[in-house]
Simulated scan of single mutants.
Amino acid sequence: MIVLLPNHKYDTAKSILALQQQSYSTEAMLIDNFEIPALNETVESIRSSKETFVGYFVEGELRAFIAYEYQEKKLQLTRLVVHPDFFRRGFASYLLKYLLNQHLDTLIYAYTSEKNQPAIDLYHSFGFVISRTFSLSDGHPMVVLERHSSYA
């Protein structure tokens, strides 16, 4: 079941943070970079975030979520998180499809590590293309992926 997550509520933010830490810890190992900012967040930073969070629940438990910021026909995907026990079971695809259907005439973009091939492959499967590459201050390679509304 997909639902909007009220991240300003303490218990919800706590659940978001716990899931995020599990997922991003696994990603950090995959990309060999443990400086992912989301790993250092707190319940309070989740509560005060201006992002919109949408969660996927299985048997009453939050197992995945997507978060984004929307502004003037542009939507930045800021987080796409799946519990490691549920990787490669379609949860990320289901959330991404849900979001894309809600924002049909919107430029949607996301940042990810150039080393995160599973994420890049997922975005490519939904019509995203790499629009640019850059490096973080620590030299870690990143990509920006975009999907325009004209994609069919």
Rank of each mutant, 00 (worst) to 15 (best):
N101H: 09
P37I: 09
G139F: 07
V3N: 12
M29V: 12
L77V: 15
I130H: 06
S93E: 10
I46D: 05
Y94T: 15
K115I: 12
F86W: 11
V54G: 00
T78D: 10
I120P: 03
Y123K: 07
L96E: 01
F34W: 12
S93D: 11
E146Q: 13
G127S: 09
T78G: 03
V43C: 05
I130K: 08
I31C: 08
E59M: 07
V43D: 03
T12P: 02
K115M: 08
R79T: 00
L96W: 00
N101R: 13
T12N: 06
Q102T: 06
Y151G: 04
K14E: 13
Q71V: 05
H83P: 02
A92M: 01
S135V: 14
D105G: 11
S49V: 13
K97D: 10
L80G: 07
P37M: 13
V81L: 05
K115T: 12
I120C: 02
I2C: 01
M1W: 04
Y98A: 03
I130S: 09
A67G: 02
V82G: 00
M29N: 13
F128M: 09
Y70I: 08
P84S: 10
Y151I: 15
T26H: 11
S113Y: 10
D105C: 07
N7E: 08
T26A: 14
I120E: 00
M1K: 07
S23T: 01
K50F: 10
F57S: 00
T12Q: 07
A119V: 09
G139Y: 12
A13S: 07
Y94I: 04
E59C: 05
L136T: 10
L122G: 01
D121M: 06
V129A: 13
I66A: 02
K9W: 04
Y24F: 15
R79C: 00
Y10A: 15
E44I: 04
T12Y: 10
F34E: 08
S15D: 14
A28R: 06
F128N: 11
F86C: 09
K73L: 11
N40A: 13
G127I: 09
R88N: 12
P118A: 05
Y123W: 14
A67Y: 03
Q76V: 11
T112N: 00
R89K: 15
T42Q: 11
F134C: 11
F65Y: 15
D105V: 05
E27Y: 04
L77S: 11
R47S: 04
E61R: 14
G55W: 00
G55Q: 00
T106P: 06
T133K: 15
A64V: 01
L5G: 00
L17Q: 06
L30W: 04
I130V: 12
